[in-house]
């Protein structure tokens, strides 16, 4: 379950980083609902406070998305940012200075994601794609080569690489969405 959410969010994030506005919108919406329950459970009563914090965190996610490392899990990144904003909120309001013990356990577990596991997730996601798209995504979005380098390595033209990345990510998004519908 957590695994599937990680995959979905990561695909949306990668597509958003490639400039797909719709994927980015879906990502922010999904993040908003996760953040709402995360902050809600911790600062509780005041719904307006929670929503302010959600918005502030969404803006941070958007402005600082360069800080996401595609080799690592998206949810660990999101939770680290949410935790930072929560602690910052406590500091500002002076309300509750320490993060409750149970939070620390939960968040520490989040920080402990195994990069090897994350890499496996990606490979599993990619395995459903045509070879060309898979290569284009792996080289440019995960290994960090430029489009030109990927083009030289594969013998595909630069525009073919770009199209491969774009279509591949589109397909992945449809794939995870269908997964969702099947289970709902």
């Amino acid at each position: 379950m957590a695994d599937r959410i990680e995959m979905q969010l990561k695909v949306l994030m990668l597509a958003g980083l490639s400039g797909d506005a719709e994927a980015h919108r879906q990502l922010l919406a999904a993040a908003a609902s996760r953040l709402r329950s995360y902050f809600g459970r911790r600062i509780g009563s005041d719904a307006a406070d929670v929503e302010d914090l959600v918005q502030e965190t969404l803006i941070a996610i958007h402005q600082r998305r360069e800080s996401f490392n595609p080799a690592l899990p998206f949810t660990a990144w999101l939770h680290a940012i949410a935790k930072y904003k929560l602690v910052d909120h406590y500091r500002r309001t002076g309300a509750r200075r320490q993060v409750a013990i149970d939070d620390i356990g939960e968040l520490a577990a989040d920080d402990d994601f195994d990069p090897a596991l994350a890499a496996m997730d990606i490979e599993r996601m990619l395995s459903g794609l045509p070879e060309k798209h898979r290569k284009a995504i792996r080289l440019t979005r995960i290994k960090g080569y430029s489009v030109e380098e990927a083009s030289q390595m594969t013998g595909q033209s630069p525009s073919a690489i770009k199209i491969g990345v774009h279509r591949g990510l589109k397909k992945l998004m449809v794939q995870v969405r269908d997964d969702d519908d099947d289970r709902d």
């Binding site: 958003g16 980083l17 490639s18 400039g19 797909d20 506005a21 719709e22 980015h24 919108r25 922010l28 919406a29 908003a32 929503e51 959600v54 918005q55 969404l58 803006i59 958007h62 998305r65 360069e66 595609p70 440019t140 979005r141 960090g144 080569y145 430029s146």
Partner: peptide, 19 residues
């Protein structure tokens, strides 16, 4: 308001170079 914020943030999204 959060919905509106998300829409306006998504509208300005640009592709990001890796690295």
């Amino acid at each position: 308001a959060t919905e509106g914020l998300i829409r306006s943030l998504a509208a300005e999204v640009k592709p990001l170079r890796r690295g």
